[in-house]
Write a protein that binds this DNA or RNA. Structure first.
Lengths: 137, 137
DNA sequence: TATTACCCTACTAAATTAATAGAGTTTTCA
DNA sequence: TGAAAACTCTATTAATTTAGTAGGGTAATA
């Protein structure tokens, strides 16, 4: 299941991407328009800022804004930051690899074999989608 | 993340599929060979029996066995029974569909758009794999 | 008829998620 | 220069899910 954090983060990014100018948008506006708890959204946007997706401006007229164009923002990167590993098991993860305590032979493991394919096909989807591709306007 | 239930269930199915004859295999044997808590495995095999994947035989010489050949067992069905929805959000689920409370327009939703593609590509993988395809032997 | 092995219910510890609360800090504009 | 606007940070918590554990019960077979 996709976490609410990821869902809200994606919606917020999409909201920012569909702005016509690059003026900062307040948290409260995004929260209201996208039906997200403002406090929760606050923490999500903060993490997107710390990972280089968003910039922020304080004070009156402040808010959050995209640091890159929507075309430059790959879903692969967004998903890794918001949701974490793309793989369903750590033993097939590219960025979060871990061995399984139980499995004696990874290569012979049927779960491994299946989940490797799932990872690849999911990655393929993320690689083919930028923020530009998933917004309506 | 894949649940342990699914992981163990898949391993148990694979173990049964790689038996040379069709004799029932005891829970204790599978649990030991695949490093699974026996009691936990018991409940998993039970659910696989109730959903028509396995048959069981009681008494001495009893155990679990596959009801179909490995070629006939699709990962799509196995995953739905063990893990539940294949989709990452209910609003793109074929078998477990639910509307989102927040989303006013599903078609315009960027999360929906992305997750629809992920669902399709994941389903494609499951459709292309039977139990036969993921066992070593 | 005793043994083996499946069947079932209920409980629980740990982890994760999705917030909530509240205080603090910085910036900007009047 | 000061007050409002807006971001920043820490800590806590309720709910849910997961991954078991415990223990007794029932059925079938040699």
């Amino acid at each position: 299941m996709l976490s609410k954090k990821t869902k809200y983060g994606l919606k917020a990014l999409a909201y920012l991407a569909s702005q016509k100018d690059k003026k900062p948008v307040q948290i409260s506006e995004i929260a209201e328009k996208e039906n997200i708890s403002q406090k929760f959204l606050e923490s999500i946007l903060l993490s997107l800022r710390k990972t280089g997706f968003l910039g922020s401006k304080k004070g009156k007229g402040g808010g959050y804004y995209l640091l890159k164009t929507p075309e430059e923002i790959s879903m692969t990167d967004v998903m890794r930051v918001l949701e974490g590993p793309i793989s369903m098991v750590p033993c097939v993860s590219l960025n979060f690899y871990e061995t399984c305590d139980d499995c004696p032979d990874e290569q012979a493991c049927s779960v491994h074999k299946l989940m490797l394919q799932v990872r690849d096909s999911t990655l393929e989807v993320y690689r083919n989608n930028t923020l530009r591709d998933i917004i309506s306007k």
